[in-house]
Design a binder for these strands. Structure first.
Lengths: 244, 244
DNA sequence: CCCTACTCTGTACGTCATACGCAATTATTA
DNA sequence: TAATAATTGCGTATGACGTACAGAGTAGGG
C-alpha cells in the first residue's frame, strides 16, 4: 500500500480525527480558496505566501502547517479551481464528450492562471479525477478497453489545454511581450514581416493569403469545433473498427 | 506594419549592422546557449540571471543589454532548444506527420524543462515556426484549406505536449511531490486507495481492474501510437469528406 | 496535574530580478 | 584630427520572496 504524500492526504480529508495541541484555526480549503481569490483578482504572480496569509489573517509561516511548500499549494489550487463536471443525462458518448471538452476549455479560459500552472504531477485531486471519471464513464458503452478510454480522455484534455493556451495568448495577453503582440491580426503581421518565403514556404504563403489577418467572419469557436470534431471522428473511427 | 518587439527582432537578426559604442562582447545566441546548457544540466530552477551571466563570463546586469527580462530569455530558450524538423523526403502526409509528432514529443522528453516553460506567446521563433511550416507543407496536397491545416498542426502539437507531460510525470519526477508518487504503479496504487467507488465509478473500476498496476507488456510507446493514430484518423476522415 | 504533541508567530537568511548611474569605448560629425 | 553622441559592461542597491529555526502558547492523554 502506497504511502500518501501529506498534501494528498489533506486534499482527501484523510487526517486523523483527534489530535493534540491547539485546534487548527484554518484548514486547507480555506487557504486554497483565499489563494484562488487572489489569483482570480490579481493574477498568479500575486499569489505569494505573504499575500495568501494576509488574506486569511494569519502570519505567513502559519501556512506551512497545512502545505509543505508553495508548490504544493499551487497543486491543490489547480484542483480546487475546477468546477464539477457536467451531468451526463442520457446523452450518447459523442455529444457528452463534446460539451465535456468545451467546458474544460472554458474553465481554463475563465481562470487563465491555470494555464501558467504546469502540472508536474498526474492529476490526483478530487475535482480533476471526477472529470476523468465522467469521461471514462461516457465511453463505457463503446467497447473500447480501459487503456483506450483512458487515452481518449487524455487526448481530449490535451486538446482543450492547447486550444485554451492558443486562444488566450492570441486574445488578451498577460506578459509585456504578449501585450505587444496582442491580437491574431498583429501576430499575423509579425509573421508576414519576418518570414522568408524560401525557408518557410508553406507558412509564409498561408500568411500572405491572409490567414489570421482579415478576421471577417472568424470565430475562435468555429476553430475549436473543428479540432474537436477531428478528435471525435478519430474516436468514432476507433470504435467502429473491429476489436483486436 | 507592426513594430517588432525587441527580442523578436534579435531572434531574427534584425539588428542594424553598424552601431556606435563598444562592440558587444556577446550575442543573444551565446547567452541562450549558455542558459540551455544550465537548464539541461541542472534544471530550469538553476537558470538564474546570475548563473547564466557567470556561464558566459559577464556580470549579471550585462545580460539586460541583450534581453529585456528573464521572461524574454526563457522565451528565446524555448525556441532555440528545438532542433530542426525532420526532412519530408517523399513521404505521404500521414507517415510524415506521424514521425513529426513523435519527434516533437521526443524533444520535449529529452529537455523536460521545456514542459515547465509556459508559452505565453504564440510561437514566433525561427525554429518552432520551421516545424509548423513543415507540418503545413505536408498537408498541402490534401485539399484542406488554410485554417484546417493550421489547426490540424495545432492539434498534433498539443497531443505531443500532453503525452510528454504525462509520460514525464509518471516517469522520473522532478518535484518532491512527484518524487514521492513516482511511477505509474504507485500512482495507480494511490488512486485505488483514495477513490470512493460510489462517486468515481468508472475510474475506480478501471483501477481495480489493474490499469497502470501490472505493467506487464506495457509500453508507453504503444500508448502514444494509439493516441496518434486517433488523431491521424480524424484528419483522414476530414480529408476524405466532401469539401464544404 | 504534568507531559507531550501541535499550532502560530517573529526573526533571520539567502536568493533573485532588476532599477540606476558611471566609466569605458567606438562611430559619426565638425 | 578633435568633439560629440550613442552604447556597452559593471557595481551597487533595493525590495520581494520562500522558507529554516526557535520559542511561546494551547489542548488532549496519562
Amino acid at each position: 500500500m502506497a504511502e500518501l504524500p501529506p498534501v494528498v492526504a489533506r486534499m482527501w480529508d484523510r487526517e486523523p480525527t483527534t489530535r493534540r495541541g491547539p485546534r487548527p484555526r484554518l484548514d486547507l480549503a480555506t487557504i486554497t480558496t483565499a489563494a484562488i481569490e487572489i489569483a482570480d483578482a490579481e493574477g498568479l504572480a500575486a499569489v505569494s505566501m505573504s499575500n495568501v496569509a494576509a488574506q486569511v489573517g494569519v502570519a505567513p509561516m502559519a501556512l506551512y502547517r497545512y502545505v509543505g511548500s508553495k508548490d504544493e499549494l499551487l497543486t491543490v489550487m489547480a484542483d480546487s479551481a475546477v468546477p464539477p463536471p457536467p451531468e451526463r443525462g442520457n446523452l450518447p458518448w459523442r455529444p457528452y464528450l463534446a460539451t465535456w471538452t468545451r467546458l474544460t476549455r472554458d474553465v481554463l479560459l475563465s481562470r487563465p492562471w491555470l494555464l501558467e500552472l504546469r502540472p508536474s504531477t498526474p492529476p490526483m485531486g478530487p475535482r480533476r479525477l471526477l472529470w476523468l471519471d465522467r469521461a471514462l464513464d461516457a465511453l463505457s458503452d463503446t467497447g473500447l478497453d480501459d487503456g483506450q478510454r483512458f487515452h481518449a480522455a487524455t487526448v481530449l484534455t490535451g486538446y482543450a489545454l492547447t486550444d485554451a493556451t492558443l486562444t488566450h495568448s492570441l486574445g488578451a495577453g498577460g506578459t509585456e511581450l504578449a501585450a505587444r503582440a496582442k491580437g491574431a491580426t498583429e501576430y499575423g503581421e509579425i509573421l508576414t514581416e519576418v518570414l522568408d518565403p524560401a525557408t518557410y514556404p508553406a507558412l509564409s504563403a498561408m500568411m500572405r493569403a491572409g490567414l489570421l489577418r482579415d478576421s471577417t467572419g472568424w470565430t475562435e469557436d468555429a476553430d475549436f469545433q473543428f479540432g474537436l470534431n477531428l478528435l471525435l471522428d478519430g474516436i468514432e473511427a476507433l470504435i467502429s473498427r473491429p476489436a483486436r
